[in-house]
């Protein structure tokens, strides 16, 4: 299976946007090699701006620039974009509904060795609480690329969550990505796994394991956490016995919370949230942390069986 990082998709998409859209301006805060905005700089240095290690100014400058009709993409690690610059995003970007794209890489615990200070497991929660904000969390390379192009077309603030590590391929070039629409990856009548980001491939793996035990799980990819696709969730709640959500994010405020809100108000059934259980991460190899914090297909399988008991 081809493994590629969603941040690499961002770099490639930016390179294409450099040619296609002269309004695109890319900002980074001294992490351009890691966030892959350096790919844009290579082909379009005149529209690449490094603000230095200053995330508040990163977002504030992008906000001002967007008022003149340009489309800024501002990048740094998810921790600093959503955390350090939260209030600037809220007041200078989202409140006036400015056309700023925040592409935040190194989200979640798969940052790995850098440890808890750099592992953002709260960013989805923070971003989705802000009015006017669209929150995207692509699952693989191709979805990430499409998400970047769609974000560039969309008028208004968008937060795109990207990962450091390589993730398995789920989609191909002709995948039709639509902001706000969930993607039904696999049909199933017993239970539904609703996953986002790198947990989508784990959900597909878990489905195979469950099939061997006679359990048929529906698998839905929610790439747009906000606005969330209510219809696909309500349908799953009505047609299957339970829902398990899966995300590389805190179980507080992220996909699990968003799904639970929809289900409890429209078609109450049991929802089990798989994610980071209200704790900080730690240093370690990404694969080992995935294991330790229960973000595996095996754990998902276990939780699905638990919820069906």
């Amino acid at each position: 299976m081809t493994m590629k990082a969603t941040r690499d998709a961002y770099g490639e998409a930016l390179k294409e946007l450099a040619k296609e859209n002269e309004n695109v301006v890319v900002f980074d805060a001294d992490l351009s090699k890691s966030t892959r905005t350096a790919k844009f700089k290579e082909v379009c240095p005149e529209r690449f701006i490094n603000v230095g290690i200053a995330e508040q100014n990163l977002i504030g400058t992008a906000a001002g620039l967007s008022t003149t009709g340009k489309i800024p993409f501002a990048s740094t690690f998810a921790m600093f974009a959503s955390g350090r610059a939260f209030e600037i995003i809220r007041n200078s970007v989202a409140y006036p509904k400015l056309n700023v794209k925040i592409a935040a890489t190194h989200a979640g615990i798969t940052v790995g060795e850098d440890g808890a200070s750099h592992q953002s497991v709260e960013d989805i929660s923070l971003m989705r609480s802000i009015p006017n904000m669209t929150v995207l969390n692509p699952a693989d390379f191709f979805e990430a690329k499409k998400a970047v192009f769609k974000a560039a077309e969309y008028k208004g603030p968008v937060y795109i969550r990207l990962g450091r590590g390589k993730v398995p391929r789920i989609y191909n070039e002709d995948y039709n990505f639509e902001i706000g629409k969930g993607d039904l990856l696999k049909e199933g009548k017993d239970v539904t796994i609703i996953a986002t980001g790198m947990m989508v491939s784990k959900a597909l793996e878990a489905r195979e394991k469950l099939l061997k035990e006679g359990i048929e799980a529906r698998v839905i990819n929610i790439h747009t956490i906000k606005p969330i696709d209510k219809d696909i969730i309500i349908k799953a709640a009505k047609e299957t016995k339970a829902i398990v959500t899966a995300e590389e994010h805190s179980i507080i405020g992220g996909l699990g919370s968003a799904v639970t809100e929809v289900v409890s108000e429209n078609a109450p059934i049991k929802v089990k949230r798989v994610g980071i259980k209200d704790v900080f991460g730690e240093s370690g190899k990404a694969d080992e942390l995935i294991e330790k914090y229960g973000l595996t297909a095996d754990n998902l399988t276990k939780e699905v069986k638990e919820v069906l008991k």
Partner: peptide
């Protein structure tokens, strides 16, 4: 800025306006 004609930037939370102004000035330079 969304509700009042003539207002070029929404402000109120202190410390953010110079960054916004920079973004505008940068755009005009580009």
């Amino acid at each position: 800025m969304k509700g009042t004609p003539g207002v070029d930037m929404s402000t109120g939370s202190l410390g953010q306006g110079l960054s916004s102004a920079n973004g505008m000035a940068l755009s005009f330079k580009l």
